[in-house]
Design a binder for these strands. Structure first.
Ligand SMILES: [Mn+2]
Ligand SMILES: [Mn+2]
Ligand SMILES: [Mn+2]
Ligand SMILES: [Mn+2]
Lengths: 225, 225
DNA sequence: ACAAAGATTTAGATAAGTCTAAAATATAAT
DNA sequence: ATTATATTTTAGACTTATCTAAATCTTTGT
């Protein structure tokens, strides 16, 4: 009989989960930035969530917050909804991969466990989302990331695109146009230390791309070999 | 650029639409009863909706409210969402006909026009919902009801079930168990004027049912011949 | 070690939606 | 036509979520 959380609370928990990757502390300022609200609003909200029964956050003045077990569970529930919904919107309703995020952002808060189960079943209990994100299991276990940011790779390293940032439709269309989609393999063939540009070659074709840090920081890859 | 209405506002407009059947005035008391909130809350809300720009309601003190053109359009938009969603939940996700209403009640407020269009397309642009209700068109025209309550029929009249009240799961399971579903034809073979019980025979089998007023008032039928 | 800068928290306001209790109005009954 | 009853509206309060401006910590640079 865990009391139903509001949409806003769910979005706060999700934001904190993403910023902390499930562990560690996050500052109120980071949350304010990510959620596009004032720092004062965040302080107020996190104090309320820390005072909940059971508490959803561990809050200490001037030292940010960490998710409690309950807070993390609530966040993972919504993240599971979000990622299943994105896949469903694409596979069943034909939404394009840059349109699904916004729609899922609203739907994630209102679907029942029944809906979640049925969608998962229709999709064959997938473990990865439309943009390559791992989907928490029914029991809310989140698989390890087993990948790092493309940004961190250097010349001669090979990798496979694992996951891309999905909250900017324009960026997603750009990625698709360049062939930078989850599953694609590549080799780093150059690095410029002054601007952090990375030159990569996709597949075994001669297709080359030069990507800036603001692109490579939004792509997660698995290093090969 | 019509400002986005809140879920609550949409539910008020929908309630007023149903109570007034799109025309005429409705008292604040009726709305309070239907929405399960206090009369004071209703008065407050209808005054706000009447003060909107453009106004969604016509309100006169102590004389109830009527939907304006804009209010009616907003109500029909949500009713279209609701009925398309119920059908979708049943046809695509396998929800039973007594489960869909509750889920649709929440989803109706958050789906985009894009979602609405795609669902309608997947379903083949249906004109009737899962419980027989007419579905407003894309342009928000509501087809005429062309039917009346089963309650009003008398001995020897034949009819076809057109539409049933869908907000009580138990009632829907009861109807399904009795074979009282939209499309089924029957003949009234008896009427008891003291308790308003109706005796009906379904199809041409010898299956007979006796139905009280609280059942017959929740079923809409088309009179045959 | 201390002042300046930066981040966070408090204080005070506002808007939406709800409630209960009291006041006002309308309807029905004598 | 008055009085009694029922309905509706107002008044005052509360909750959630947000803001701006002011106060208070923390961190950093010298
Ligand atoms: Mn997303
Ligand atoms: Mn969201
Ligand atoms: Mn319904
Ligand atoms: Mn609703």
């Amino acid at each position: 009989m865990t009391k139903r959380l509001s949409d806003k609370v769910e979005d706060y928990l999700k934001s904190i989960y993403h910023l902390s990757k499930g562990e560690g502390r996050v500052s109120t300022g980071q949350i304010a930035e990510d959620m596009d609200v004032s720092p004062a609003s965040v302080t107020d909200m996190v104090q309320r969530l820390a005072a909940e029964n059971p508490p959803l956050l561990d809050y200490r003045k001037h030292q940010g917050v960490a998710l409690t077990g309950d807070g993390k569970k609530a966040a993972l529930e919504i993240i599971r909804h979000h990622r299943l919904l994105e896949l469903f919107l694409h596979e069943v309703l034909g939404f394009s991969w840059d349109q699904v995020h916004e729609e899922a952002e609203r739907l994630e808060h209102v679907i029942s466990e029944e809906f979640e189960e049925r969608v998962a079943a229709v999709l064959g209990n997938p473990q990865r989302g439309l943009h390559g994100e791992p989907i928490p299991s029914r029991t809310l276990e989140m698989p390890d990331p087993d990948c790092c940011h493309l940004q961190e790779l250097r010349t001669n390293q090979r990798g496979r695109i694992q996951e891309v940032n999905d909250d900017d439709p324009g960026f997603l269309r750009y990625l698709a146009a360049q062939g930078l989609i989850p599953g694609v393999e590549f080799e780093v063939i150059g690095y410029s230390m002054y601007d952090d540009n990375l030159r990569i070659q996709i597949g075994d074709g001669k297709e080359e791309l030069v990507l800036g840090a603001s692109v490579t920081s939004q792509i997660q890859v698995k290093v090969l070999e």
